Amino acid sequence: MDKYELRAIILSGILLSVFFFAVLYNSYSRFPFFNIFASGQMLKLQKNSRPKAVTIFEEILKEWDNHLDFTSVAITANMLKLFVLSSREVNSESPILTKTSYNSVLMKQFLNLIEENFKDVRLPKDYAALLYITSNHLNFICKDQINMSAGEIIRNRVLLEAKRMLVNFELSVATIGMKLNFFDTSYFIKFIKKYTLFTPEAFRKQYYNKS
């Protein structure tokens, strides 16, 4: 093997790695149970899939107990296998996919815009402007499609991200608030308490106790 062949192999390996991590990053938001709709965040596996899920969980526990090199990577890989297994059992990605009207197209565009901008853009009127429609029209579409207001949908996405981050015990409440563009920590605490009935610390304490 000459040096040019070796370079080609190394370059191919780098490109494959970049492609793999790009797919991994983009797949996260495509898993249907990671969404803002509470009814879609729980999935009951079919009977023939349960043994596979149990095997994956057993592998995760084995890795956790043994603490070998790359344990966190192995656990992550097994979690992805579990997500893929679960996602393949979901018949549709969201309650609006069965509708094909113009309003449903706008609704999907609205949800995509929220996913891209929820940390910075919080007002329905700003999303309406991005869609070139009025705020009233956007609210009408949301009510028509999923019986929620535009403001509720935006807020649910922010709340979902806050919950995910609160489970990471290494992040302080103030840091999480800053990452979500709540520059006043007290306001972030009030926001979480209003919509979960728990303070951020009380919410995360549930997971401390479980772990």
Score class of each variant (00 low, 15 high):
71 T>N: 08
72 S>G: 02
76 T>W: 05
79 M>W: 05
81 K>T: 03
82 L>A: 07
83 F>V: 02
84 V>H: 03
85 L>P: 00
88 R>V: 01
89 E>K: 05
90 V>K: 12
94 S>I: 00
95 P>V: 09
96 I>Q: 08
96 I>H: 12
97 L>D: 15
99 K>V: 10
109 Q>W: 02
109 Q>I: 01
110 F>M: 05
110 F>E: 08
111 L>C: 13
111 L>Q: 07
112 N>F: 10
113 L>I: 08
115 E>L: 11
116 E>N: 08
121 V>K: 09
123 L>V: 14
124 P>I: 04
128 A>G: 03
134 T>M: 02
134 T>G: 10
134 T>K: 04
139 N>I: 08
139 N>K: 03
145 Q>T: 10
146 I>V: 15
148 M>E: 14
151 G>F: 12
152 E>D: 13
154 I>T: 09
154 I>K: 08
155 R>F: 05
155 R>I: 02
156 N>K: 15
156 N>A: 14
157 R>H: 15
158 V>W: 08
160 L>Y: 15
162 A>M: 07
162 A>L: 04
163 K>P: 04
166 L>I: 10
173 V>P: 01
173 V>C: 05
174 A>M: 03
174 A>K: 13
174 A>P: 01
176 I>K: 03
177 G>N: 05
180 L>Y: 04
180 L>F: 01
184 D>S: 11
186 S>I: 12
188 F>G: 06
191 F>Q: 01
192 I>F: 04
193 K>E: 13
193 K>Q: 14
193 K>G: 05
193 K>S: 13
195 Y>N: 09
196 T>F: 03
197 L>Q: 14
198 F>G: 00
198 F>V: 02
198 F>C: 05
200 P>I: 03
202 A>Q: 14
203 F>S: 03
205 K>D: 13
